[in-house]
Nucleic acid binder design. Structure first.
Lengths: 356, 356
DNA sequence: CGGCGTCATGACACCGATGTCATGACACCG
DNA sequence: CGGTGTCATGACATCGGTGTCATGACGCCG
């Protein structure tokens, strides 16, 4: 690997002049510049970021920690999937800011986080992003003085800058659109009640009902998932919840599920109960897990969990902090998701019109 | 950020002695060691990897490039998903080897690869892993002298060390098991014929038939996917393929699909044609995309695409190269996937037994 | 008891970039 | 024509570790 001294020798100038050509921070004679550039090309010289880091105390690196999977309710089996979209969003924003991304994951053991952070500190990262696999509260060890920290898809009690999905708005938007399509009896089979998202989304669901002047029927909201990763138990719970709402005296015409996987299961269960989808019952998911939503028949109407945007915003905030902005707004930043309206919610004529 | 000099001052020793304590590469007196360790703790000192890199020419970094998504047939919409499992596998293996992972992705533009590699070279990575989003041939720009390169989920014509899934064996294994379950007419609705995996898997399918002494009926093998990302066209193509095989004079009792997404679609299409699954027709996918396979009803029998293992093997090979092994075996290393036998393939009594 | 090996430690140079300061050559201004 | 400012360039020190070599104190061997 050639160095700036090699380039200087070949171009017959001093290393400092090569440095000036590289950084354009001081005037360099036309011919000198050409000679230096030729030497750089000839040698295939690439400056060493290690040497720059030493001199400038700026590494151009940002660390990203993912994981802490195992301690958590629901979803763990899926983990790693959403993470990646967040990571891609982060990567894009960082690259635009000229920074490079260092990654490590805990492999499910959150006790390893301090160790991973230590590795990042060795590399003198300018900031750290912690990505959670689902919207939740976390509690991270202190990071050393100058290291900035941003949380993505999670938040903590200490008011660390955080970026999370706007679950309330997402569910509100989805349900409002279903109401606009003519549905008034809309059941909501939620994720485990332990999850942060569940509370927020139920609020969103109620917001939409309230905005349309529809009374909230508690019997229509059922926890339909378990807080552990057990496909059998998940299936059972969902089946019970389905039975429950379908057996109501005034059964729903539409069903919101806690996520797209639950929707896949619901499709299968409902069909095996002889229902014709979406004619007999409209279905909506959550997450906009495209591999699922676009492949199901009928294609699944759902609300996007804006992973990439969360990653991008988290990275942008981190870069701002690095560039000197201060922590500012202590409330987590909420990122809205798109409404993915597909074919699983059928428009329905309001009843008084149906009679006429 | 404190330095080794700060530690030396606090412990009243020379920096070199601190270095010896850190690296354990020369004897240090008991009391001196204790004093140094106390100083390190007190200051929260973490050695600078930049300084070490400069002196030793070893950065402890490995770069990973993902992407080149947009130029490719099929799957692109999903991309990023499988990548992440590979990345996680890589990360785990690297960490075990004491190396740290640097990531960047092309955001779908493979022309940006050289630029990304340049960034890695600036950071003096000791090796680079290129991850493709699906099994394919690639052609990468030359990397500088000392930088080792390993391909994951892809291979090139230059014989660069590569790790790929064993598609042929995977399909063989799956079909063999279906035959063992009593199926003899097994249709195969493949991915786009342009994909490397398709050719290999068709071979595997034929291997299994041949091993069981079943004649290969060309009418049962149909390309059922299109080489572009167009959900509409994909649906149409799959529907035609289904119609084709179901209309055969001697229709199949089981169906292999090119991937799990196609299986999701097939479930919907077949049910809307009035079939009862899996009683009327057995179905198998490919990929073992758990979010799908475990949620469908009936749960999907499929062949695992061993992404994490591919990542791990690629990283292990890279570490071996860095530690001095030579390129060796020029053929890509094939990683076998598990058979994920679930509920969508129904055992079937052989016909002569059914009669008795 | 002199010589040699080991232990424990420190002084110093070096890795590759860049900030600071110095130097020489012009050009322009009054 | 001397002073001052800009351009173009180089010498040198510095960032934080670590390899090399030197030094002094013992302990052991013959």
């Amino acid at each position: 690997m050639s160095t700036i001294y090699d380039v200087a020798r070949v171009a017959r100038v001093s290393p400092k002049t090569v440095s000036r050509v590289l950084n354009g921070d001081a005037p360099v004679g036309r011919e000198t510049r050409a000679a230096v550039e030729a030497a750089i090309d000839q040698l295939g010289y690439v400056p060493s970021s290690a040497a720059r880091t030493m001199r400038s105390n700026r590494s151009g690196l940002v660390g990203l920690v993912t994981g802490a999977i195992s301690l958590s309710p629901d979803q763990p089996a899926l983990s790693g999937l959403p993470d990646l979209f967040i990571v891609q969003g982060v990567q894009r924003a960082l690259e635009a800011a000229g920074m490079t991304l260092l990654i490590s994951d805990t492999g499910g053991r959150s006790d390893r986080v301090p160790e991973l952070i230590r590795t990042f500190v060795q590399h003198r990262v300018e900031g750290i992003i912690h990505v959670a696999d689902y919207h939740r509260e976390v509690s991270l060890p202190k990071v050393p003085q100058g290291t900035r920290l941003v949380l993505a898809n999670c938040f903590d009690a200490a008011g660390t800058p955080a970026v999370v999905p706007d679950d309330r708005h997402g569910q509100d938007q989805l349900v409002a659109r279903m109401i606009a399509a003519g549905h008034r009896r809309i059941a909501y089979l939620t994720l485990s009640a332990e999850m942060v998202a569940t509370g927020l989304r139920v609020q969103g669901y109620r917001d939409a009902l309230a905005a349309a002047g529809i009374a909230d029927d508690p019997a229509l909201v059922v926890e339909a998932d378990v807080p552990v990763d057990d496909p059998q138990a998940e299936m059972r719970r969902l089946a019970e919840a389905l039975d429950h709402v379908l057996a109501l005296p005034d059964p729903p015409t539409a069903l919101c599920l806690g996520n797209d996987r639950m929707a896949v299961r619901a499709y299968g269960m409902l069909r095996s109960r002889g229902l014709d989808l979406p004619r007999d019952l409209s279905i909506a998911g959550y997450d906009d897990y495209r591999a699922i939503a676009e492949s199901l028949y009928p294609t699944l109407t759902t609300a996007e969990l804006p992973y990439a945007a969360i990653g991008t915003r988290a990275a942008e905030r981190l870069v701002a902090l690095i560039r000197g902005a201060d922590g500012a707004g202590s409330a987590p930043e909420k990122v809205p998701g798109r409404l993915a309206w597909r074919a699983s919610v059928l428009p329905r004529a309001p009843e008084h019109q149906a009679i006429s």
